[in-house]
Design a protein around this nucleic acid. Sequence first.
DNA 1: CTCAGTGTTCAGTG
DNA 2: TCACTGAACACTGA
Length: 278
Amino acid sequence: MPELPEVEFGRKVASAAGLGRVIRSLEVEADEIVFCGDSPRSVKRRLKGARVEAVHRKGKYIWFALDRRPWPIFHFGMTGAFRSPALDPLKLASHGKQKDTIWPPRFAKIWMHFDDGNELVMTNARRLGRIRFAEDPRLSPPIAKLGFDPLLEMPRLPQFRRQLAARKSQLKGLLLDQSFAAGVGNWIADEVLYQAALDPRRRAHELDADEQKRLHQKLRAVIQKAVEVDARKDRFPRRWLFHRRWGKQSEARTHDGERVEFLEIAGRTTAWVPTRQR
DNA sequence: CTCAGTGTTCAGTG
DNA sequence: TCACTGAACACTGA
């Protein structure tokens, strides 16, 4: 589920639930993997009684600015999410008529109760997500190494051109590299390359001026649009490759009837349209 | 029962 | 150092 747009929606959920409020109490799963070795007791000690002064995101990471340190950092892995009755994606997606109104949701790893009665849960079914603490998240290991966030700090074209010229990797691999563009994941990389009409195997440094410009424009546009609709797939434009890429079906076609093919690049399934991407 | 998978990290190779 | 690959992580859901 989570690439930049989904994580940004998670930030909104956390913000709606907890911004400006005090964490009065919390339940914490004993999970050494997800909590990076921290015990439930130490997680509670750090969070209980703290006020959430801001909810930040960079790339696929979310962290809280609390009124005391250290601050918690959340990463969803492949299956995590924030859930809150204050802003529930499942309710939104089904116009309120969802059978999945179980609370707390399955696979809850941390369940925060705020002083006004609001609640926030982070779920993580496959345990590839992480919750860790840092004195200054923006300056510490995972987040400090990230490249630009395409929603918040998209470089201007001249600088983007220089960054491309400095990289010899394949475009697909480059877009997935979080130290280049933070928050791009597998489907966004494919969508951007499809819309920019670029072969995912092309090398970054060999793009011509027009190709650089298309990549720059589509990277920004795809992410902006997905964020604008709160990462709701049913609201992604109908002509996006996104709707056609799942299941590796040999008969897959684009909106315009072009053949969708599949490659493995950088260890990930890559959907692309050879008749269009050069 | 098998297996892909929307993510990250690390060891190993060239 | 860079570029890249493969494996590991963990476990659901098809």
